[in-house]
Amino acid sequence: MEHINNKYYLGFEGEPEIIFTVVKQDNEKSGLSLWSGYFDNIMQQITPVEGKWTALSYYYNLNIGWYDESPWLIENIEGAYEQFKGIDKNKLDELELEILEKILELLKKSIEEKNNVYISYE
């Protein structure tokens, strides 16, 4: 069974879409679909570490990873989680903050349950 929450993509059909897909140990899939504009605004709040992009922001800023190959496995879920967790929430609007919380919840649960997480760009 597959359940993808597309609440944050509704109304943007035909625009670029980012999909986080969690694949559980029993191969059950769930995830979160969102308009790439929301994702871009959130990702732009991540700052370099000692002048270098790391973890998920590395792939985002170089337009590789999920831009080249979808679905793309996030190999460092912990690093991605820490980056999203470190975002200054005051720089996001209410809806972007809600999306960030959903992403954090998805990544944290995946770390705890040792699930794989993929990003797709469509």
Rank of each mutant, 00 (worst) to 15 (best):
G11R: 04
G11M: 08
G11S: 10
E13T: 03
G14N: 13
G14H: 06
E15D: 11
E15V: 03
P16Q: 05
P16G: 07
I19Q: 00
I19W: 00
I19L: 01
T21W: 07
V22L: 05
V22I: 14
V22H: 03
V23A: 06
K24F: 08
K24A: 13
Q25L: 13
D26F: 09
D26M: 07
N27R: 12
N27Y: 13
K29I: 00
K29T: 00
S30I: 05
S30R: 10
S30L: 10
S30P: 01
G31F: 04
G31A: 04
G31E: 02
L32A: 05
L32K: 04
L32I: 03
S33L: 03
L34K: 04
L34A: 06
L34D: 04
W35L: 08
S36Q: 08
S36F: 07
G37Q: 09
G37L: 06
F39I: 00
F39S: 00
D40R: 12
N41S: 11
I42A: 06
I42C: 08
Q44V: 06
Q45T: 12
Q45G: 10
P48W: 05
P48H: 04
V49H: 14
V49G: 08
E50L: 15
E50K: 15
G51Y: 06
G51K: 10
K52V: 09
K52G: 07
T54F: 11
L56H: 02
S57A: 09
Y58W: 11
Y58I: 01
N61G: 07
N61M: 14
N63E: 15
N63D: 13
N63Y: 15
I64S: 13
I64E: 14
I64V: 15
G65Q: 01
G65L: 01
Y67Q: 01
D68E: 15
D68A: 11
D68Q: 13
E69F: 11
S70A: 09
S70Q: 02
P71R: 04
W72M: 02
W72D: 00
W72K: 02
L73W: 02
L73N: 07
I74A: 00
I74N: 03
N76I: 02
N76S: 11
N76M: 04
I77S: 01
E78W: 15
G79T: 02
G79A: 08
G79F: 09
Y81R: 03
E82C: 12
E82G: 05
E82S: 14
Q83M: 04
G86C: 10
I87L: 08
I87V: 10
I87K: 02
D88R: 06
K89A: 12
K89H: 07
K89M: 10
K89W: 02
K91T: 13
D93W: 07
D93C: 10
E94N: 15
E96G: 07
E96N: 14
L97M: 13
L97K: 15
E98P: 09
I99Q: 09
I99E: 07
I99C: 12
I99K: 07
L100K: 14
L100P: 03
E101M: 11
E101S: 14
E101L: 12
L104W: 07
L104Q: 12
E105S: 14
E105W: 03
E105L: 10
L107C: 08
L107P: 04
K108C: 08
K108I: 06
K109C: 06
S110C: 05
S110P: 01
